[in-house]
Design a protein around this nucleic acid. Structure first.
Lengths: 243, 243
DNA sequence: CCAAAAAATGACGACTTGTCAAAACGCGAC
DNA sequence: GTCGCGTTTTGACAAGTCGTCATTTTTTGG
């Protein structure tokens, strides 16, 4: 007999409830504090039931990562559709990336945990691919903008450089910057007073270095950044403030 | 009664042996595969003896990180002493950073494991400070070069930007880039054929963007890079090749 | 050679993860 | 209503790990 629709709905609701509890637990007590028994207890289910949804603790972790990761390509797509020059559009991507880490501050932790190979290996192939697909979609969106810039004559890449090489630079800069922000706390003590602003400026410098026109002294990209916040990600920004 | 010198030496040798075995185990089987019982067994000591050296598994991990980390500031210092323009010297730092990750490819993993807050918290305050001190020494060396550049008139930073903000950019770029290289394997599939070279070029673009003279089209910094490899880090490069 | 100090041992308690036989449940048939 | 059968849930359990500490072994100085 096919499982009734109601049953299925309940199953999905429970899965979401597990994820919610797990997310909170992870944020509060870290990877070692995430505990299948406690999750079961908190939800008043038995452990066996939890294991009907996730084959292991690592699989649960991966599910958490997938759920959040899926929001990034959609944010990137909205940013890429911003009406402006190619360089304004890549600025919009920067805005999306920054908002993403601010909206989902725990996601970075989860991703870092999963990058430990011994943990990654214990997760299901299927979920691994879901995660890779998100990454790949993001990269495609950004390299598309780089190609547009070249086609429109705003950018000429040096010989032997592909658009992907430049995307790799932006990726490194943002991933590295946000990782450092997330893990090395006393950045103000090191002389960095607004780390997110610093990431933006360093990114602008790199794009200036490649000669992506209009250069940052010819156009106020910080203003573009704010326009994107208001025009494209108004809801997200509001959510961030009320949090 | 003072412990005899021989005893002390043996103790230190054993500590090193533990670290060696742990390092290998970690490289082979990851964080979850690192196991105190197995370490004891491999060395033919009892577990209690291992715990005389390290108060916990996490403490052992931290010791591993400290041991490798200490080599970075010394490499940075040698790079900073390179005889050339300020921008050549910062290129030398880039060379040191790249060599460091290539010489100690596992170190990145260890650092990433430690960054999981739930693990970091279980390590001793003393070792935490050792690690922070290494980081701080590196930052000081690099920001010193930036200040030299400003003093010598090779660089003017935009208003409201400190030397540390620029150092943060270089740090983000290299940390992010090397992290991605270490964890996202199929980079060639994404269109990045020589990821280390790409990091170098992206770094040059950022410094060009800040107008750090001589700019990269006025000076062949890739040649400088190779000179540094031969003149400053000849031994390290040889070690890398023979590995 | 002996006694006291130091070092090494490994059985043990506490805690986790993941399994699975058994119990509880849901649902249609009668 | 209640019976029977397939499904779902349960929690005791096996296996594995960390870290401890009373006990045993080794070393040292006299």
């Amino acid at each position: 007999m096919a499982t009734s629709a109601r049953k299925q709905r309940e199953f999905q609701q429970r899965e979401q409830a597990i994820l919610d509890v797990a997310r909170e637990m992870l944020a509060e007590r870290g990877y070692l504090g995430l505990n299948m028994d406690r999750i079961a207890e908190a939800l008043e289910y038995s452990k066996g039931t939890i294991y009907q949804h996730f084959s292991s603790k690592e699989d649960l972790l991966m599910a958490l990562a997938v759920q959040t990761s899926e929001k990034r390509p959609s944010m990137f797509a909205r940013a890429a559709a911003f009406d402006g020059s190619s360089r304004e559009r890549v600025t919009a991507i920067g805005c999306a990336a920054e908002l993403f880490v601010q909206l989902f501050p725990d996601h970075f932790r989860v991703e870092q945990i999963l990058q430990l190979t011994s943990i990654w290996e214990k997760t299901s192939e299927q979920r691994q691919q879901l995660l890779r697909a998100c990454q790949s979609r993001c990269l495609t969106i950004v390299s598309g903008i780089v190609r547009d810039a070249i086609d429109e004559g705003d950018l000429e890449l040096p010989e032997f450089m592909t658009p992907e090489d430049l995307v790799f630079g932006m990726w490194s800069m943002s991933f590295g910057g946000y990782s450092i922000i997330a893990t090395s706390e006393p950045l103000t003590e090191l002389g960095i007073h607004d780390a997110f602003m610093t990431v933006r400026k360093n990114m602008m410098a790199m794009l200036d270095g490649y000669g992506w026109r209009p250069l940052s002294h010819e156009w106020d990209y910080l203003a573009t950044f704010e326009r994107v916040q208001h025009e494209v990600f108004a809801d997200e920004c509001r959510a961030l403030i009320t949090t």
